[in-house]
Computed example of a mutant assay.
Amino acid sequence: MSKHSKDVEALVVLEDGRSFEGESFGAPGIAYGEAVFSTGMTGYQETLTDPSYRRQVVVMTAPHIGNTGWNEEDDESRQIWVSGLVVRDLSRVESSWRATGTLDEALKRQGIVAVQGIDTRALTRHLRDRGAMRVGLFTGEEALRPVEELVRLVTQQPRMAGADLAGEVTVDEAYVVPAEGERRYTVAAIDLGIKGMTPEQMARRGMEVHVLPASASIEDVLAVRPDGVFFSNGPGDPAAADEAVALMKAALDRRLPVFGICFGNQILGRALGFGTYKLKFGHRGINIPVRDKQTGRIEITAQNHGFAVDAPIEGTSSTPYGEVEVSHVCVNDDVVEGLRCLDRPAFSVQYHPEAAAGPHDASYLFDRFARLMNDGKGAQNA
């Protein structure tokens, strides 16, 4: 069991007993969550405001965090969702002309506990070897308690497996993001933890986006007379998201064009009859290579997921909704990164084509969704 010095200011304690001493910033106090690491060199604000990070403590592998400050324009949702933040070096100044404040101020304002000054390289290597695990951040007098006692507190926290969290992050009431220019399509977007850039990307392509709560029924979806249905990213275990799976099946039954990303990909997988499983340490960052099996093209993608779809990578699979193929695969570990239905107008990817923050290699997927809806309109008019 690790020991700590008597004058430690902050302590990061993992459930297996490994601990790291550091310095407190952000809000003082205690934070619990699942320890995960993100490999993005930039985009910490988009990461912290991504609802998919609900109940997680994010370890940033980039050594210098906070240098671009904080501004309201780059928030991806209404608040910071991470349980806590761990970095090696907090920038002492913000150097972006767009900054309206600092990272430290934003964390304090929203009550988010953070720790700096630890060896995030060693922590990341530990999580890669042992897997994502529960963690506690302890600051001030709480950090002076015996490590054994703090480990007991950490192990009393719920695990991510089995967690149904979409209802904790979804919008309370439906809202509309109008199309830019001429409205060509109407989309019902199911908010399982949606990021703000996603409906913006669709709006730029002439889509009027009706963002609906995760509790929406198929009747709520049909009420907006959609040309297509979108299932967003989100937190938690897809094996626990039965309500979203039922809605996905209802959309597939009606042959509505469907596009899912991240959590939405896992929901489509479950609706088709595939299982899901927890990854050892997940994919989180903006530099993860994915191969499009149809074109052979390698896309550098933004990702944030700890679960994956269990489907055969080669060939097609027979499902209640016809034949389905795996369309994309992670180059690093052969994890399923996309599904394409051959007998239904539906497809999904495991990564984030809205690129907030991240590369724009996959933005064409919104155009693919538009073509799918256009084809659906043609079939209706035939």
Rank of each mutant, 00 (worst) to 15 (best):
P28Q: 08
S77N: 15
V58R: 01
K108Y: 04
N67V: 13
R130S: 06
V36L: 12
M133C: 14
W97G: 12
T102S: 13
H64V: 14
Q45M: 14
A132T: 14
R134Q: 15
G43I: 07
E9F: 02
G136Q: 01
R128Q: 15
L103G: 02
V12L: 11
V147I: 11
D89G: 01
I30V: 15
Q116V: 03
D74L: 04
V147P: 08
E21R: 11
A143T: 09
W81S: 01
E34V: 12
G84V: 04
V8N: 12
V113L: 10
K108P: 00
P63S: 05
N71S: 14
Y53A: 03
K6M: 03
T39D: 02
L107E: 06
L107Y: 06
A10W: 07
E141T: 13
P28W: 04
I118A: 07
E149V: 14
V147T: 13
V12H: 10
V57H: 01
G117Q: 13
E73W: 09
H64F: 14
V113F: 04
T102I: 05
P51Q: 11
T120I: 10
G22K: 04
L107M: 12
T49C: 10
G29F: 02
S38Q: 00
G33R: 00
D119L: 14
L107H: 08
A106I: 04
A132P: 00
G136C: 03
S95C: 10
Q110A: 10
S52Q: 12
S96H: 06
I112E: 04
D119M: 09
M60D: 07
V59D: 04
A114Q: 05
V115F: 07
A99G: 06
A132Q: 12
T120M: 05
W70N: 05
G69L: 09
E23D: 08
K108Q: 11
E148L: 08
R78Q: 04
S77A: 13
I118P: 01
L48G: 00
V57F: 00
E141Q: 13
R92S: 14
H64K: 03
E72Q: 12
G117D: 10
G26T: 08
T49D: 01
D89W: 06
E149W: 02
V8A: 11
M60C: 10
F25L: 08
R54K: 15
